[in-house]
Amino acid sequence: KGGFIWALKNYDGDVMSDMIAAAFGSLAMMTSVLVAPDGTMEFEASHGTVTRHYYRYLKGEKTSTNPMATIFAWSGALKRRGELDNLPDLVKFGEQLEAASLRTLEDGVMTKDLLPLVEPGFRARGADSGEFLDAIAARLA
């Protein structure tokens, strides 16, 4: 269920988060927040790039790249910027983006990497990258 903080040096955190995410099915669902001693923060997706998907995209082929960790890295950064600059609308937008993304999964629309993780009886369909992002945008609107 989460609810804990695990402080590690950057490389050790990379290794451990990759192992844990792989055990639960998808690196694309894990974000990372790096916090410096002075309170500076960096938000990132824990995974690397998906080069083979990018090359398919360049050829005009459809891909099913899971953007959740990247979305949550951006939403986390937007919320933090909103806090620092006292921009409540920016914080609210970050929260709404996260909620729309989670609602999309809860509604059974997901990228194909998540389909093997679906519990029996839950109706889900695999979407390509564009369909998944469009579904999130529709819920955000």
Results as ranks from 00 to 15, higher is better:
residue 89 D to H: 11
residue 90 L to F: 01
residue 50 V to Q: 07
residue 51 T to H: 14
residue 90 L to W: 06
residue 65 T to D: 09
residue 56 R to T: 02
residue 61 E to V: 11
residue 59 K to P: 01
residue 94 G to M: 02
residue 71 I to Y: 01
residue 46 S to K: 13
residue 45 A to C: 07
residue 85 D to I: 08
residue 41 M to I: 04
residue 35 V to F: 00
residue 29 M to S: 06
residue 81 R to I: 14
residue 60 G to A: 12
residue 60 G to H: 12
residue 43 F to W: 08
residue 70 T to G: 12
residue 33 V to I: 14
residue 28 A to Y: 02
residue 37 P to W: 01
residue 89 D to K: 14
residue 71 I to K: 04
residue 71 I to R: 02
residue 89 D to N: 12
residue 49 T to C: 11
residue 44 E to F: 05
residue 63 T to H: 05
residue 48 G to S: 09
residue 64 S to M: 06
residue 55 Y to I: 11
residue 29 M to E: 03
residue 80 R to G: 03
residue 38 D to C: 11
residue 48 G to W: 04
residue 40 T to A: 11
residue 71 I to S: 03
residue 39 G to H: 08
residue 52 R to K: 15
residue 84 L to H: 03
residue 41 M to G: 04
residue 89 D to P: 00
residue 36 A to R: 06
residue 73 A to L: 08
residue 95 E to K: 10
residue 54 Y to Q: 13
residue 70 T to N: 09
residue 53 H to V: 10
residue 58 L to A: 13
residue 35 V to W: 00
residue 93 F to N: 08
residue 53 H to L: 06
residue 28 A to I: 04
residue 50 V to R: 13
residue 94 G to V: 06
residue 50 V to T: 14
residue 29 M to V: 11
residue 53 H to R: 12
residue 38 D to Y: 01
residue 52 R to G: 14
residue 31 T to N: 09
residue 35 V to M: 05
residue 85 D to H: 14
residue 31 T to Q: 03
residue 92 K to T: 10
residue 29 M to K: 04
residue 54 Y to M: 15
residue 43 F to P: 01
residue 77 A to W: 01
residue 65 T to N: 11
residue 62 K to A: 14
residue 70 T to Y: 03
residue 65 T to A: 12
residue 72 F to M: 09
residue 71 I to W: 04
residue 83 E to W: 07
residue 65 T to F: 04
residue 48 G to T: 09
residue 63 T to V: 13
residue 62 K to D: 11
residue 64 S to Q: 03
residue 51 T to F: 13
residue 85 D to C: 13
residue 82 G to T: 04
residue 51 T to C: 09
residue 52 R to V: 14
residue 87 L to E: 01
residue 85 D to V: 06
residue 45 A to H: 06
residue 81 R to T: 13
residue 31 T to D: 03
residue 82 G to N: 08
residue 83 E to N: 11
residue 83 E to K: 15
residue 86 N to W: 03
residue 51 T to D: 10
residue 96 Q to W: 02
residue 87 L to C: 03
residue 68 M to S: 08
residue 86 N to Y: 05
residue 79 K to G: 10
residue 69 A to R: 05
residue 32 S to G: 08
residue 64 S to E: 01
residue 50 V to E: 10
residue 70 T to I: 10
residue 58 L to D: 08
residue 79 K to P: 03
residue 70 T to L: 13
residue 67 P to I: 05
residue 75 S to W: 00
